[in-house]
């Protein structure tokens, strides 16, 4: 029974189960989308003019890179700030969605259904695989929804080619996979759903102190290291570069490196916690 077929079929079944949950209770997923969408609207329509005015001279402008300096001539209008904001909010959407993953993994572990799975002749890893694939798909759908809202209020990619769009989608998926594995681990170590949603808070908190809203060099000095040396910032800068043509630079390899490292960390962490929790 070591052939891959049963493992794949078991994982597919687990994936169907998770997607069924998401379809049956869309409010859980939609609630998680509220944060990025509200932030998008808040920062564009409420703070938008101030934010863009404050940043236009330093680093945003039409160039909108971190260190590219004032690019276009006084293009600090609302649509420019929308463009600046959207890449970060798309990644933040992934962070929010994976909080839901941590909660549902924790629910699974505490409600006894996983104990049942463990006493069945099924592939052990399929429980986690189902969660991860389901959650990544949910993230992609969430990103599309938030992207649609962004497009509705004026977000346009300046010059992205089909290849760049594809790369952007690939980066978003890779990033979602990385955060999902971390969230699965957080869900596994949490004794209940409340603890899981608390433990997963960094996934919401980190994008707030990244280059989502303002360039890093516009931040106070003490927080700049926090903003710079974390997974969101390089991913945001890479996404900006792909969609808006800003300079990507070393972020082009830093972003996937972060993702792969987080994937590996989350995977081995989750597997070890999951296996240990079974064979006490």
């Amino acid at each position: 029974m070591s052939s891959p077929a049963p493992a794949v079929r078991n994982s597919a079944t687990m994936l169907r189960r998770n997607l069924l949950h998401a379809r049956r209770y869309p409010s859980l997923t939609l609630n998680l989308l509220l944060t990025p969408i509200m932030l998008l609207l808040l920062f564009v329509y409420v703070f938008g003019d101030t934010m863009s005015a404050g940043m236009s001279m330093s680093s945003m402008g039409m160039g909108m890179g971190t260190g590219t300096g004032p690019g276009g001539a006084g293009g600090a209008d609302r649509s420019a700030y929308v463009a600046y904001l959207v890449p970060g909010l798309l990644l933040m959407t992934i962070g929010s969605t994976t909080v839901g993953t941590a909660v549902s993994v924790s629910n699974d572990m505490t409600e006894g259904i996983v104990a049942r799975f463990r006493t069945m002749p099924i592939h052990r890893g399929s429980v986690l695989t189902g969660h991860v694939i389901g959650s990544v798909l949910q993230s992609v759908v969430s990103v599309v929804l938030v992207g649609a809202v962004a497009a509705a209020i004026g977000f346009r990619s300046t010059d992205a080619t089909a290849l760049e769009w594809l790369a952007a989608l690939g980066l978003l998926t890779l990033f979602a996979t990385a955060l999902t594995w971390i969230a699965v681990g957080m869900g596994l170590i949490s004794p209940n759903a409340e603890a899981a949603s608390n433990n997963a808070l960094p996934l919401i908190f980190l994008p707030l102190v990244s280059s989502t809203f303002v360039p890093i060099d516009a931040m106070p000095g003490w927080i700049q290291p926090v903003a710079e040396y974390q997974p969101f910032t390089p991913a945001i800068e890479t996404l900006r570069g792909l969609l808006l043509g800003t300079e990507i630079g070393h972020n082009g390899w830093l972003a996937p490196a972060w993702c792969l490292a987080l994937c590996a960390l989350g995977y081995f962490w989750s597997r070890s916690v999951f296996d240990k929790s079974g064979r006490k």
Binding site: L20, E111, G112, I113, R116, T119
Partner: peptide, 14 residues
């Protein structure tokens, strides 16, 4: 084997 645990292990969401 088949196991029915002390606390029902059914998926309440489906």
């Amino acid at each position: 084997i088949g196991v029915t645990g002390q606390f029902s292990a059914v998926d309440g969401l489906i």
